[in-house]
């Protein structure tokens, strides 16, 4: 779509939305948000980007193939369940390490996997539809 106002606005918007998506992803454990919302937000950003600049630009900006992103997400989510197995707990049981005020746990990795899987899925269909 050729519209200078939209293009300019879109550049700004897309950047902001992607930053906001990361924020939503990270705050999800304590505040409303999380992997799903973040992925949808990022997907919307890329959709906007694709509408204004065309799918090729999006592919270049993303670098990885959408299918790869989705599969990485699935793998990450599945692997987040593995540490529990080594500790004789059921698959996907949350395992936490804390060091002072910092918490790190497998559920966060899992949420990241969810984010990537859903984002990859949205991107793959979006780009396939946009390309002609």
């Amino acid at each position: 779509m050729q519209s200078t106002i939209l293009q300019t606005a879109a550049h700004l918007m897309v950047g902001l939305m992607l930053v906001f998506a990361v924020y939503v992803l990270l705050r999800g454990h304590h505040e409303p948000g999380g992997g799903f919302s973040a992925a949808l937000l990022a997907g919307t950003a890329f959709a906007l980007f694709a509408i204004t600049e065309g799918p090729d630009q999006v592919r270049r900006a993303v670098r990885f193939r959408p299918g790869t992103i989705a599969m990485t997400g699935l793998a990450l989510a599945a692997m987040a369940g593995l540490p529990a197995l080594f500790m004789d707990k059921p698959f996907l049981t949350g395992i936490w390490w804390h060091q002072g005020p910092f918490f790190m746990g497998t559920p966060l990795i899992f949420d990241l996997g969810v984010f990537l899987a859903v984002l990859g899925a949205i991107l793959s269909v979006l780009l396939a539809l946009e390309e002609n």
């Binding site: 409303p32 369940g81 949350g94 746990g105 559920p107």
Partner: peptide
């Protein structure tokens, strides 16, 4: 147990993550 304050998200990524 799950170190999360957002119960909905904790259910999704921890209690019912499968």
């Amino acid at each position: 147990a799950a170190h999360g304050r957002n119960i909905v998200n904790v259910i999704l990524v921890d209690f019912r993550s499968l």
